[in-house]
């Protein structure tokens, strides 16, 4: 009796908790609203299955608990019932998988004309590099890293000269324009994550990874590192500022290119 009651409480309590919980996603600020939609579908389906199974169990415990003289039924299997349940499950799973794969196919196809920029991770800070006037990113390699060249750009690559290098400052993005982030790390595995944009991706040394999104809401958003990278992992933060096009252009105009930075360093010496 008590057991059945507790089981009912667990099922009902979980659903009530879910409905009343003040803890939910941060408001979305990118084009990945479909991800939230898929999660919601999944919550409905799984919530239903969870309640059904637990309540069924509660009923059985209540109805078929041992009393003197009870004897269980002899019922080794029912292929019919099992198959039906299997099919129903498969349908439910497909209902979650289909939207999931649909959204994933959007995630893997970067729209043509998407602007590219680079995010570089190292213990424990974020840096960025934007293409300059030529619109291209030059090559890079950890072996070039030095105090004057913190991101390891190839000094001999003409394409890299006009690249804009941002170390220890915020990244700005224009609203409504898709961007493809090229990710690389100088030391260990990190992971670029802005919860408001939903998507995240690892940064690995020796490899360039990427993902894309379109910022859809003006504001300042915090970058977290979501790939455990040593003692400073929780402190590895940065900011992305999403703003209107003209504000963005104004910001862009104030940034320094790789060439300017190197010259300045030389002048200092």
């Amino acid at each position: 009796m008590v057991v059945a009651l507790v089981l009912v409480l667990v099922a009902v309590g979980s659903v009530v908790f879910h409905l009343l919980s003040p803890w939910w996603f941060t408001p979305i600020a990118s084009n990945w609203g479909y991800i939230d939609a898929t999660i919601n579908i999944t919550f409905w389906i799984t919530g239903f299955v969870f309640s059904a199974v637990v309540l069924f169990m509660a009923y059985c415990v209540f109805r078929f608990r041992h009393v003197d003289g009870r004897r269980a039924a002899h019922q080794p299997e029912s292929t019919r019932l099992e198959s039906w349940l299997g099919i129903a499950t498969a349908v439910g799973v497909a209902a979650m998988l289909a939207p999931g794969l649909f959204v994933w196919s959007q995630f893997v196809t970067v729209p043509a004309g998407t602007a590219e920029l680079e995010v570089v991770g190292q213990q424990w800070q974020w840096s960025f590099r934007l293409p300059g006037k030529q619109g291209r990113l030059g090559t890079s390699d950890p072996q070039y890293v030095s105090a004057d060249n913190p991101l390891g750009l190839n000094p001999n690559d003409p394409k890299g000269r006009d690249n804009i290098v941002i170390v220890g400052d915020d990244l700005h993005l224009p609203i409504g324009k898709p961007v493809k982030l090229l990710l690389r790390s100088l030391d260990v595995v990190h992971d670029f994550w802005v919860p408001e944009f939903r998507a995240k991706m690892d940064l690995l040394p020796g490899l360039v990874t990427y993902f894309w999104f379109t910022p859809t809401k003006v504001g300042t958003y915090e970058i977290l590192c979501a790939g455990f990278c040593g003692i400073g992992h929780p402190q590895m933060r940065g900011s992305v500022v999403v703003e209107e096009e003209n504000a963005y252009q104004a910001w862009l105009g104030k940034q320094q290119t790789f060439e300017q930075l190197t010259k300045k360093q030389l002048a200092k010496k």
Partner: peptide, 14 residues
Amino acid sequence: LFLGNVVVDLPLSA
């Protein structure tokens, strides 16, 4: 089922 469904894993992983 959330985490296995690749897009849902994007925001939830880690």
